[in-house]
Nucleic acid binder design. Structure first.
Length: 735
DNA sequence: GGCATAGCTTTTTTT
DNA sequence: AAGCTATGCC
């Protein structure tokens, strides 16, 4: 029996079709990773393809690692020679070797969005662009979109003739690229675009890689952008052995430049392409799959396919609507704990998915209270944290002092009494003499305008020079420790001794151990190598499997994952679908949200619980939302609607299931205006009074603010601390 | 010239 | 709720 016997016919068709373009339309849970890994195995074992000639592109480093591992298990040997990586890391690898052809130094650094913003802020100042009118982020967004479409600064400028505001943007774009070049840095989009540029300008290099990668596979193809498409087209144009796998229904990265046309028009670009559809789902129960199918059916822009499963019907989907996001979070924590306690899976079998990172806060709070082990993916990326960026900037400066941004970030961290005025003078000197910022620092004595400030700059330069001298003899971890020692970075945090500073120290410890494990594991560890690795990690890459914790993450991060028990939280119009897409004139924006919903539903294997809240705090103010329109698209018979308000809190006579169902499903009943709080004419308590809350117990009223709809009462509870609450909900009783 | 603080604004998703 | 900017103070 061969390893291919256990596959279904479609899957086998995809595996055995090795020559020429191939489009695999793989629905959610249809075993596409399995197909890809078996296809690689088949190429190597049966077709005698040299593993060295295979390139597999995945979406995240985590997916790449998993794929390599799985191929390793299927193939006797050679798996390690297969290139499995993300677009970005593949491009970095190529650029490190050949970027000198484009006039860059091979030691280039990679700018994250934080660095980009700092740089753009600087440019706006210099070009006198009003950042009230054009925010840095907006400009960067426009530049990013241009790069994703392979439109360079020059070309962008040519297209903007006559349009005044666009010309200003073009100017910013040009200056931005110029700055990147002088700093010897690339941003994320550059990694792809510069590689395409490299191939276009250097046919010999392109040909070498075409020969190298005779067989190319691309996973999550629906989320590739134009630049990425061009890249693989170039690579595959010689041998045409391009296999792409994707699901147009799971395209959720349009905002990042993903071009859904890449998958919808694949057959037009490669007329000889074979198309294989994988429509059998092995992951979810019939109920869950039915729900997903009914939701996605409302999209117009999609390839025709219907996912089916031979799995059981399974448990109904549970839908719960709550008064507040607070209760919602509480319910999820309780329900989850109950299920785990009942032996219905482990914590790691559960995932909470939400639309925005901000929603994780409340959930986290409740999980902490309930003592449920959890892990939050996303939010502020580990490597984007201040303390980590500070220390990495030191390492960057030691490694590549052409990166002005890094130098400027740390020159006054820890405080050395060097301020904006001093920096401006150094900057002027650097521009005048066309040298880097750091070299200007080294020559500080020659800047007359500085005066006595020179004395403050000297120790910094000495420090960097010393570290640079040590670099040769130190491992990355040792160098990092040296930085920490010499700057007293951790010592300052220790003195601060707050909860926040302790968390920062923990992060620093984690960074040290990451450096140490890099030193150990890398084939040929270098400082540049470490910095590069660190620049390209996504948060999801660090999701360890052998850890019994609930995962909390955005729907976007959840792509490609599966969990027996999934909670979709915050299913409200305005949250999901987001407000922006509801008011958007472009109806395809809403379709993308629906695809996201489809992705969310199809993550669940056995149990899906959907929750929403009538009110929730957003950016400091309470919002009232209707139940998400996507809920209406799920057939009623698949859903079990739970009680809306927890009986504990609410003492109304129990409503029948029918009335509850009606309430939950009649979206019209949830017009914001209809949600009225009966504002008491007068409260029975005042500031300073002792009151009692059903859950928090006794406390003292600290403040009462009269809002439009209700009184907002601040109470300092003896046990639970200070809470702000609406009088109508709090039901406070005078003690 | 540098540092602390009080108001002011927020695109949701990320390699 | 939180980060950033402008302002005032040392």
């Amino acid at each position: 029996m061969s390893i291919y016997d256990s596959m279904n016919e479609r899957q086998r068709e995809a595996v055995f079709h090795t020559e020429g373009p191939l489009l695999i339309l793989a629905g959610a849970g249809s075993g596409k990773t399995r197909v890809l890994t078996h296809r690689i195995a088949y190429l190597i074992e049966e077709k005698g393809v040299n593993p060295w000639n295979i390139l597999a592109i995945t979406f995240t480093n985590k997916a790449a690692g998993e794929m390599r591992e799985r191929v390793d298990r299927l193939v006797a040997f050679g798996a390690e020679s297969v290139w499995v990586s993300t677009f970005h890391s593949a491009c970095v690898r190529i650029l490190r070797r050949h970027i000198d052809r484009l006039g860059y130094d091979s030691k280039f650094t990679i700018y994250d969005s934080d660095d980009q913003k700092t740089l753009m802020k600087d440019i706006c100042k210099r070009l006198q662009i009003d950042t009230k009118q054009w925010k840095e982020k907006t400009l960067l967004g426009i530049i990013s979109s241009a790069k994703n479409e392979l439109i360079g600064a020059q070309e962008y400028e040519m297209n903007t003739m006559g349009d005044f505001s666009k010309r200003k943007i073009a100017e910013a774009y040009k200056e931005y690229q110029r700055q990147l070049r002088t700093n010897n840095a690339l941003d994320f989009d550059d990694l792809i675009m510069k590689t395409v540029e490299l191939f276009k300008l250097n046919p010999d290099v392109l040909e070498a890689y075409q020969e190298r990668f005779k067989y190319i596979m691309v996973d999550e193809y629906q989320d590739t952008n134009t630049a990425q498409f061009k890249l693989i087209s170039l690579l595959a144009s010689k041998y045409q052995n391009l296999c792409v796998v994707g699901d147009d229904d799971q395209s959720i990265y349009k905002f990042r430049g993903a071009n859904i046309r890449n998958i919808l028009n694949f057959e037009d670009v490669f007329p000889s392409a074979r198309v294989v559809k994988l429509e059998q789902n092995y992951r979810s129960t019939k109920t869950i799959l039915d729900a997903a199918n009914h939701v996605i059916r409302n999209n117009l822009e999609r390839k025709n396919k219907t996912l089916w499963t031979a799995n059981d019907g399974g448990a109904p989907i549970i839908f719960q609507n709550f008064m507040t996001a607070y209760e919602e979070a509480e319910y999820i924590a309780e329900d989850l704990a109950k299920r785990v306690a009942a032996g219905d899976g482990n914590y790691s079998d559960c995932a909470i998915l939400y639309r925005t990172n901000a929603q994780s806060r409340l959930l986290e709070e409740k999980f902490l209270l309930a003592n449920i082990p959890y892990r939050i993916i996303g939010g502020v990326n580990f490597y984007a944290r201040k303390e980590i960026k500070d220390l990495l900037s030191y390492l960057k400066t030691v490694d590549n002092a052409r990166d002005d941004l890094a130098v400027r970030r740390i020159i006054n961290v820890p405080r050395r009494g060097i301020g904006a005025a001093t920096l401006a003078k150094v900057q002027d000197f650097a521009v005048e003499n066309e040298i880097s910022f750091y070299n200007a620092l080294r020559a500080a004595e020659e800047i007359p305008a500085l005066g006595r400030s020179v004395a403050k700059l000297k120790p910094f330069v000495t420090l960097i020079q010393t570290l640079r001298a040590q670099q040769e003899y130190f491992s990355v971890a040792e160098l990092l420790k040296e930085v920490i020692d010499r700057t007293d970075y951790v010592k300052e945090l220790e003195d601060e001794n707050t909860e926040e500073s302790r968390a920062r120290i923990e992060n620093i410890d984690e960074l040290i151990s990451k450096a140490a494990s890099y030193d150990e594991e890398a084939e040929n560890p270098t400082l540049s190598g470490f910095l590069e690795e660190v620049a390209l990690v996504a948060d999801i890459d660090n999701l360890e499997e052998n850890n019994d914790r609930v995962v909390l993450m955005t729907l976007h991060s959840a792509k490609g994952l599966e969990f027996p028990n999934v909670y979709l939280a915050g299913m409200e119009d305005g949250i999901f679908p987001s407000y922006m897409t509801i008011v958007s004139e472009d109806p395809t924006d809403l379709e993308e949200e629906r695809r996201l919903c489809y992705v969310g539903i199809t993550r669940a294997m056995r149990q899906l619980t959907i929750t929403s809240a009538r009110s929730r705090m957003i950016r400091g103010e309470t919002q009232y939302n209707k139940v998400s329109r996507f809920i209406q698209e799920i057939p009623r018979e698949l859903v079990q609607v739970g009680s809306m308000i927890k009986p504990k809190v609410q003492e109304l006579p129990k409503q029948t299931a029918y009335i509850q169902a009606k309430q939950a499903f009649q979206a019209k009943a949830f017009e914001p205006k209809q949600y009225k709080v009966t504002k008491a004419d007068k409260l029975e308590y005042g500031v300073g009074d002792r009151v009692k809350h059903i859950k928090f117990g006794a406390g003292t009223v600290e403040n009462i603010v009269e809002g439009g709809k209700d009184y907002e009462v601040t109470v300092n509870f003896d046990r639970a601390g200070v809470k702000k609450m609406f009088a109508a909900f709090a039901k406070l009783k005078r003690e």
